[in-house]
């Protein structure tokens, strides 16, 4: 028997949820949702769990990840209870539940903590550069090594344990029995959803946003590959150089559109922005733009005299890799794909 816990709702407000208490359970949100099905019906159920504070039920649910936030539910809600934004805050909350370090929750709930972390990261970059007497080639070399080490470490120390926790909360603890073979059979779904987010195309009138998002994911991953594996900044291959320009341009052009959407607030999906949302899109713009500029300055021979640009790029990179990627909104790339994967694993039982 679940005991009603109104504290939970208060806590959820710090993750961005608001007014969901106004829900009078008409179910319009669920009826208009293009992704909700009879077996996996949301968001009303999630709103209800949030109001009553049924934490265990939310923790074990994959439903928050099944939503791709088109905002139809919020548009049609007669009580303006904002189910769409509630689903978003549940994803933030789940991210912090999966995170074994607890840092995710701290950064989501407490903005000053995020700001402090960002400042510390910047200070570390400056301090490191100073210790190397602001020697550009040395700093650039270190920057390149940092990227590789950061990716490996975040994956091993944060993501793998967190994914195991997610698996424990959503599959093992609720006692879902599936044959091991299902995990292989469903493996294809993991990659399809990770790289295409094809489910988002089923959201109402979402083809353009889906395309933008798809380009961003591909552009981002390609930029990562170009800088880390192909070592873009040191490469002399014309192909690599042009590829780098292309993918970094994709990253900042698409994200500039996302940022302007959040400023204009015309679409439901970009009407409400939590600090973590701002940080995610703004840092993507900075990443793409600064990488583009660094390479441009290299090609024009200006970088020697404009060390500050590389330091800016490195700062953005460090903040991104140590704060936003492991503990911020970046994780939705991973958790959502795995949620779709686990969902597929479960579905094959039936």
């Amino acid at each position: 028997m679940a005991s009603i816990n109104t504290e939970y709702g208060r806590d959820l407000r710090k993750y961005g949820g608001f007014d969901f208490n106004a829900c009078y359970n008409c179910g319009t949100c669920t009826a208009v949702c293009s992704l909700s099905t009879e077996e996996d019906s949301f968001p009303r159920e999630m709103v209800r769990f949030s109001v009553l504070g049924m934490e265990d039920d939310i923790k074990s649910s994959l439903k928050p990840w099944l939503c791709y936030y088109c905002g139809e539910c919020t548009t049609h809600c007669p009580q303006t209870a904002n189910p769409g934004e509630l689903m978003m805050s549940l994803r933030r909350w789940l991210t912090s539940v999966y995170d074994w370090t607890g840092l995710s929750g701290l950064l989501y709930r407490f903005l000053p903590a995020t700001v402090t972390a960002m400042i510390l990261a910047a200070a570390a970059v400056i301090a490191f550069s100073a210790s190397r007497d602001f020697n550009l080639p040395e700093i650039m070399k270190a920057g390149h090594y940092f990227e590789m080490i950061a990716i490996g470490t975040v994956l091993a120390v944060i993501f793998i344990p967190n994914l195991i926790r997610m698996w424990w909360f959503t599959m093992l603890k609720p006692g879902i029995k599936v044959p091991a073979a299902n995990y292989f059979k469903a493996a294809a779904d993991l990659f399809i959803h990770m790289f295409t987010q094809k489910r988002a195309r089923d959201c109402e009138d979402n083809n353009f946003r889906w395309l933008e998002h798809f380009l961003l994911v591909i552009g981002y991953l390609a930029l990562l590959f170009t800088t880390v594996v192909l070592d873009w900044f040191s490469s002399s291959s014309l192909f690599v150089i042009i590829l780098g320009y292309l993918v970094s341009a994709i990253v900042f052009i698409v994200t500039i559109d996302f940022v302007s959407g959040r400023i204009r607030k015309k679409k439901e999906v970009s009407r409400f922005s939590h600090a973590s949302d701002w940080m995610f899109v703004v840092w993507l713009v900075l990443m793409g733009l600064s990488a583009f500029a660094v390479r441009l300055f290299i090609d024009l021979g200006w970088l020697e005299n404009n060390l500050w640009l590389y330091l800016l790029h490195l700062t953005v990179l460090v903040q991104w890799a140590l704060i936003i990627v492991p503990f911020g909104k970046w994780t939705h790339f991973l958790y959502r794909s795995f949620a779709m994967y686990f969902h597929s694993v479960k579905s094959q039982v039936k």
Binding site: M1, A2, S3, I4, N25, E45, R48, F49, L52, M54
Partner: peptide, 16 residues
């Protein structure tokens, strides 16, 4: 007080 709450899929919930 406990109730089989029909708004939560007839789940039993309670409060003291």
């Amino acid at each position: 007080v406990r109730i089989n709450d029909i708004l939560t899929g007839i789940r039993e919930v309670s409060v003291e």
